Simulated scan of single mutants.
Amino acid sequence: MRILPATGRRLIRYNASLRTVKDVISSSKVEQFSTGISATPIARRGTWRRWLAKQNLEMRGFVQLDWSLSRDEVLNYERWLFENLSAHRKYAKQAHDRHQPNASQHDEQCVYLVWWGSMPEELDA
Rank of each mutant, 00 (worst) to 15 (best):
V74P: 03
S34G: 09
R45V: 03
N15A: 15
A6Y: 05
S34C: 12
R9P: 02
L11S: 07
R79Y: 12
P101S: 10
Y14T: 12
S28Q: 11
P120A: 11
A6R: 03
R45M: 12
W116T: 03
Q32C: 04
L81D: 00
T35M: 08
R79D: 04
D97W: 10
H106R: 15
S68K: 12
I42C: 03
L4K: 04
E73D: 14
S17I: 15
E122S: 10
M59P: 04
L4I: 08
Y77W: 12
I25E: 01
W51F: 05
R13P: 07
K22S: 08
Q55P: 07
A87I: 13
R13E: 11
P101H: 07
V30H: 01
Y91G: 01
N102R: 14
V114D: 01
G61W: 14
D23H: 15
S38N: 00
A6Q: 04
A103T: 08
T40S: 00
L123F: 08
P41Y: 01
T40N: 01
S70A: 11
T20M: 15
L113D: 02
P5D: 02
I3P: 01
R71F: 13
A53H: 11
V114N: 01
Q94H: 13
E73G: 11
S38Q: 00
S86L: 07
Y91M: 06
E58G: 11
R79H: 11
Y91D: 03
G36P: 03
D107P: 12
T47P: 02
S26H: 14
P5C: 06
V114P: 00
I42Q: 06
P101R: 09
D97L: 09
Y77E: 02
W67D: 09
M119S: 13
K90S: 02
A43G: 09
V114E: 01
